[in-house]
Amino acid sequence: MNLLSKALITLLLISLTSVSYATPEQDKETFQSFYTERFPDISKAEFGDGVYALDQDARDQWEAMNDFPPYEDDLEEGETLFNTPFTNGKSYASCFENDGENIRQHYPKFDSKRNMVVTLELAINECRTNNDEEPLPYKKGDIAKISAYMASTSEGSEINIATPTSKGELAAYEAGKQYFYSKRGQLNFSCANCHIQNVGRKARSETLSPALGHPTHFPVYRMKWESFGTLQRRFDSCNKQVRAEPLPGQSEAYRNLEYFMTYMSNGLPVNGPASRK
């Protein structure tokens, strides 16, 4: 082969790779069809049930438990908290579109003025501080109860995160994607290693759930926690498993990760809160 044709091939390869650089929309298609092709008997909506979509025995136990959902009291408390006015007389409803009803599916949102991802929990706390209330601690407790109540008003609405297009949105999206695919911790795992590469396989007795559908049902009431936890609390559990340092709630990296993961689940119905082992 002469030098010229070598150079041409190299050029072609370079242009091919730059053309095949995936947009978020293409990423989402690839991501979703990976799972739907891998599990052809599972409908897209069912992926929101996590391992219970894959493992019938586990599903039977789970459904039996849900005859009396373990989170009922906490969910009711969340509703009461949501409806209790602040000292200034205003309420959570005043901070959100549609009085905070049926909006879960639009979070996280990208705030282009501040150039950052805003999760529902961050918005809840900003609502508080804008009304001269102390912010709540993240990941568990009252914030998870309020968020769980808000999620329950979105039951069945499809996750609908606007496709990242602006420079800021794309940067946050790419950072979240990078986090999801990067190995970390002494044990050297990425989220993708467990939830894509080994989905459906068993780590000890734990079936590894698909990442498609991860954000649909949070906050989750975990029997292990005996309480609600937000999606970011679950990130901590997985980070600890691989001996990586968990990050503070609502840190930039976690918000971007949540943004990426939720966009990947666009079109799936909200089905939270849910219970998990």
């Binding site: 080994n198 396989r201 068993k202 780590a203 000890r204 007795s205 734990e206």
Partner: peptide
Amino acid sequence: CLACHVMDDGDMAGNI
């Protein structure tokens, strides 16, 4: 190792 490998008499081994 049991997280991922069947080995010896270990119970509840994974299959990664």
